[in-house]
Computed example of a mutant assay.
Amino acid sequence: MLRVVLSVAVLAFTVYCVVDVVQTEEERVRGLPKLVWLVVTLLVPLAGGISWLIAGRPRGILKPRPRPSGPRGPDDDPDFLRGI
Rank of each mutant, 00 (worst) to 15 (best):
D76C: 09
A55R: 15
L42Q: 07
P45R: 03
P58K: 00
F13H: 07
K34C: 03
P64Q: 13
E26R: 09
T24H: 03
G83R: 14
L2Y: 12
L2R: 10
I84H: 12
V29N: 05
P71I: 01
T24D: 06
L2T: 07
V44A: 14
A12H: 13
P68F: 11
R3I: 12
P33S: 10
V5Y: 07
V40R: 10
G56V: 00
G49Y: 01
A9V: 11
P78S: 04
L53I: 10
V22K: 11
A9L: 13
V18F: 07
V40W: 04
W52I: 07
S69H: 07
S7V: 09
D20G: 09
P64T: 14
W52A: 01
W52N: 03
V44I: 09
D79C: 04
S69N: 10
A9P: 01
R82C: 07
L62I: 05
D75L: 13
D79R: 06
I84L: 15
R30T: 06
R67K: 11
L11F: 10
V8I: 07
R72I: 04
L42Y: 00
T14E: 07
G60Q: 00
V18G: 00
P68W: 04
P58S: 05
V19N: 10
T41E: 01
V5W: 11
R28T: 08
